[in-house]
Design a protein around this nucleic acid. Structure first.
Length: 562
DNA sequence: AAAAGTTGCAACCGCATAGAC
DNA sequence: TGTCTATGCGGTTGCAACTTT
């Protein structure tokens, strides 16, 4: 959309008209004091022409000289912005393509709000354009109750992160190169997206002295972006429309599964979520209360702008980084090469192999602040795993509470408090992340698949009544997910072949199980009892897993023990 | 049909930072 | 070392277009 409404009014000062700068009456601004009054507001085509001409002659840069030499009454900053965002040659106009969208998502998962860096990967696109797109996307997805990142992105980050363990710290440098070839938004998108969003579970956010990962969680997962419910005040019709719009945003024939799944996920949400007994804003019952999702900041404008405003209170977090996987070129000394993303997992692995002395857990587990959300989650999960392992080792010998324990406890207490604060002591879902991960392989190995009913496990305390979903997803007639899937058993999904294929869960199960188990920690388990069952490695824990692995079908349910 | 509300985008501002001088 | 300039970024605003009431 253009704001060039004053085409007749050039808004430029002819070089032979010194001393009488044009000031757009409707957009007058500039500095009233001393010197030239600079024009603000929309650029006119005449101004554009002047700027283009100037750049042709003098090249880019030295923008403050533009005003002096061209007669443009625009500040250098404005000139630079105009040039960079609109006049620069080779700029790509029009809507983002599917591949570009996917790339943006992927890049954002890795970089966070590093728009310029993202733009570098998108030839012809500007940082501002990407930022606007992202903010718009966030708004749409929030309103539609969708997660910010497609699960595939999370999983890819996960896999990449883990591959770093063996592939070296440069493993992710090339992460974006194959983004455009990524064509794997498959059913997991539906399932995970749906589960994630509708469950709106983020009861627990780790709060470590180092705010990196936790802040990301606070601002990312903790925000409605990740645990988003549509505000209850939104009209259903509007939400539906927005969902349609959202879907249409991915609607592009020939596109991969991302479009397909995004297109149907709202319906799928309904089905899946209802099968979990979830209540979410689509509930037509006006009496239904939709408590704010965890992390939802009431009135938080930051949520709308999608930038996770650090200035907004987020569970007490201070000025925070965004939920990004930012890995600036600087400040990576401890991580090795500056050009590489922080080798989270290497570090964690090393950490696990060489547990720090008690009491140094947190300080030694400083999350690379430059890392992104997903990496941060990984990092935190594994860090906690290591910490827990260590502390549990110690606890076998002594009941001494270590600082690390204290941190965990406080964190978990926080979680508990937040559960209570939000008046939702019961997770809408019914399985623990740990159990999910722990069951991943066995179920797969035992042949549980989407084509068969998973064994109906007993969930003695489970409030969720399984409800068969008629059809989860159908795509081009090739991959039809069984209608018999018991979504109260997300492990059925996890154990399925497609899940294994799409997530690589089995491969990394041991690591993840351990990490998640730690996240679900024993401390937390003291307060909450896992409602699910299964050979969980941390059967008494709850909570963070389903949030940290927001895009995992971590299905948890908890109830507060007396 | 009109008013009110919403959305998307261009553009701006303030601040932080890097690099040149 | 300090200053200046360019750049990047988060946040915000204004407005036309669009949608809803």
């Amino acid at each position: 959309m253009s704001h060039m409404t004053n085409e007749s009014e050039d808004g430029v000062l002819s070089k032979d008209q010194p001393g009488s700068p044009y000031i757009d009456e409707g957009n007058s601004g500039g500095s009233p004091g001393g010197g030239v009054i600079l024009k603000k507001g929309p650029w006119t085509s005449a101004e554009d022409a002047i700027l283009v001409e100037y750049v042709k002659k003098h090249g880019e840069g030295n923008w403050n000289a533009v005003q002096k030499h061209s007669g443009l009454f625009r500040c250098g900053k404005s000139c630079r912005l105009r040039w960079a965002n609109h006049l620069r040659p080779n700029l790509k106009k029009g809507a983002f393509t599917a591949d570009e969208e996917r790339l943006i998502i992927e890049l954002h998962a890795k970089m966070g709000n590093k728009w310029a860096r993202m733009a570098a990967h998108l030839p012809g696109r500007t940082d501002n354009e990407i930022k606007n797109y992202w903010n718009t996307r966030i708004k749409r997805r929030q309103r539609a109750g969708l997660p910010l990142y497609p699960p595939e992105v999370c999983l890819q980050a996960l896999q990449e992160g883990q591959s770093q363990n063996t592939g070296g710290i440069n493993g992710r440098d090339n992460g974006h190169h194959d983004l455009l070839q990524t064509n794997s938004y498959e059913i997991a998108d539906v399932i995970f997206d749906g589960l994630n969003n509708k469950q709106g579970v983020l009861p627990c956010v780790l709060e470590l002295p180092d705010i990196s990962a936790s802040s990301m969680l606070m601002k990312g997962l903790g925000s409605s972006q990740y645990c988003s419910f549509v505000p209850p005040t939104m009209h259903r019709q509007k939400r539906l429309r927005e969902s349609e719009a959202l879907f249409s945003g991915y609607d592009d024939s020939g596109r991969n599964g991302l479009a397909t799944f995004d297109q149907i996920q709202d319906d799928t949400y309904d089905k899946i979520a209802r099968s979990f007994g979830l209540s979410f804003p689509y509930d037509p019952d006006p009496t239904t209360k939709n408590p704010l999702p965890f992390g939802e900041i009431q009135g938080g404008h930051s949520l709308l702008n999608g930038n996770f405003s650090a200035s907004k209170p987020t569970f007490g977090a201070e000025k925070l980084e965004l939920p990004s996987l930012q890995y600036p070129e600087t400040d990576l000394g401890s991580w090795g090469r500056s050009s590489s993303p922080p080798p989270l997992l290497e570090s964690v692995d090393a950490f696990i192999q060489s547990p720090p002395p008690t009491g140094t857990v947190q300080s030694e587990c400083v999350s690379p602040r430059s890392s992104g959300l997903l990496d941060a989650l990984l990092h935190q999960a594994k860090t906690m795993s290591s910490a827990k392992n260590h502390s549990s080792d110690k606890s076998s010998n002594s009941s001494t509470v270590t600082p690390g324990d204290l941190a965990d406890s406080s964190t978990l207490n926080l979680c508990e408090t937040e559960w209570e604060d939000y008046g939702e002591p019961i997770s809408p879902l019914g399985h623990s992340a740990s159990s999910i991960f722990s069951e991943c392989t066995p179920i797969s190995a035992s042949g549980s698949s989407l084509d068969e009913h998973p064994p109906v496990e007993t969930f003695p305390e489970c409030n969720v009544k399984p409800e068969p979903v008629d059809q989860v997803w159908t795509s081009d007639g090739e991959k039809e997910i069984s209608t018999q899937l018991d979504f109260s058993r997300p492990d059925a999904l996890l154990g399925s072949d497609w899940f294994e294929q799409s997530t690589g869960c089995v491969k990394d199960q041991a690591i993840m199980t351990d990490a998640i188990a730690s996240l679900l920690g024993d401390d937390f388990g003291n307060n909450y009892k896992l409602m699910g069952s299964g050979p969980s490695t941390s059967s008494q824990g709850w909570g963070f897993g389903s949030c940290a692995w927001n895009n995992m079908p971590a299905v948890c349910q908890m109830s507060e023990l007396p």
